[in-house]
Simulated scan of single mutants.
Amino acid sequence: MTLPQSAICAETGDFAVFLTLTLVPGAERTVRAILAGFPDMVEAVAAEFAEPRLVGSVAIGAEAWPRLMGPKRPAGLVPFAPLADGDRFAPATPADLFVHIHSPRHDANFALARRLMARLGSGATVAEEIHGFKHKGGRDLTGFVDGTENPKGEDRPEVALVGDEDADFRGGSHVSIQRWVHGLTQWEGLPVPQQEGIIGRTKETDEELDDSVKPPSAHIARVVIEEDGEELEILRHSLPYGTTSDSGLYFVAYGRDPATFRKMLDAMVVADADGNYDRLMDFSRPVTGAAFFAPSKDLLRQA
């Protein structure tokens, strides 16, 4: 059995560390060996902190893949493509590696991140480091429950992990990340019914609005996409992050097919024939965007 990296299908922890890194030319062999040992590093820190729910994954971008893993690459692994329509823009930002660590304990996450970065040394530089946290039991900073439709239980690996359709990369997962900055002052100035129309759910009880009153520009109306009668799914590990001056949502999507996320993002950013786009983008904007592939533990360990 091909085992996925531990962060992918686990339930999202209360705290997370998200690292995007760039490779230093000439350090590829050293970095490759360190990545091969990352699953064992996760297990060692989990044992040290007596925290079995500490999990981690590392993913590799399209441009770094041949430098670290060889010429054969996962189907669909391409650089993140920016999107723009009007004043809505989803940028692409430089990143070769993505490290995702989460657990119920910030101290354990921090220790694992420090250990990895100490091992990498001058082989990779940090493009961005974000520390996420669970807010009010799973709500975004907008006050709405986040990830209501996320797959659960046995559905999680079915949605997230590559299968026989790309057999050489079975047990891996395509990863898309974006950091969204919320305009919370503007958002919090809206009446709750108006917020609910923008999201498409009730704020207090998290019930989906009836189609008769849910605007076609509502967030969930844009990102819920059906093909051949089936709803397309991604496995999200998004968490709020921030300081008193800058805050939002760190969005992480795992999937067996990267096209699913791209279709959702396109529906958010690009207006349809009737001029409808995701109205949430009037109050929140992505400032980063990158795509990666998280190989299975077995493939990763083949240094």
Score class of each variant (00 low, 15 high):
Gly56Ser: 08
Arg156Ser: 02
Leu161Gln: 02
Tyr277Asn: 02
Arg29Phe: 09
Asp155Arg: 14
Ile220Asn: 04
Ile130Gly: 02
Ser212Ala: 14
Met1Val: 14
Glu226Arg: 13
Ile177Thr: 15
Asp166Phe: 10
Met117Ile: 06
Asp140Glu: 13
Gly137Thr: 08
Glu204Gly: 01
Glu28Pro: 08
Arg53Thr: 13
Leu239Ile: 10
Gly242Ser: 07
Glu128Gln: 15
Val55Gln: 07
Phe98Leu: 12
Thr244Gln: 13
Glu128Tyr: 08
Val162Cys: 07
Gly132Glu: 07
Glu11Trp: 12
Arg262Gln: 15
Leu265Cys: 06
Met117Tyr: 07
Val192Gln: 04
Asp166Cys: 05
Gly275Leu: 11
Asp210His: 13
Ala160Leu: 04
Ala81Tyr: 03
Asn276Val: 07
His135Pro: 01
Lys72Leu: 14
Leu3Trp: 12
Glu227Ile: 09
Leu299Arg: 07
Leu83Glu: 07
Asp211Gln: 11
Asp85Cys: 13
Gly138Ile: 09
Ile101Phe: 06
Gln195His: 02
Leu209Cys: 12
Gln178Trp: 01
Asp210Tyr: 07
Glu158Arg: 10
Leu239Val: 12
Ile34Ser: 12
Ala267Glu: 13
Val31Asn: 10
Glu48Val: 09
Glu230Thr: 15
Trp180Asp: 02
Leu280Pro: 00
Val213Asp: 06
Asp210Met: 08
Phe133Ser: 05
Glu11Asp: 15
Leu77Trp: 04
Gln186Tyr: 10
Glu231Cys: 12
Lys72Pro: 04
Val145Cys: 13
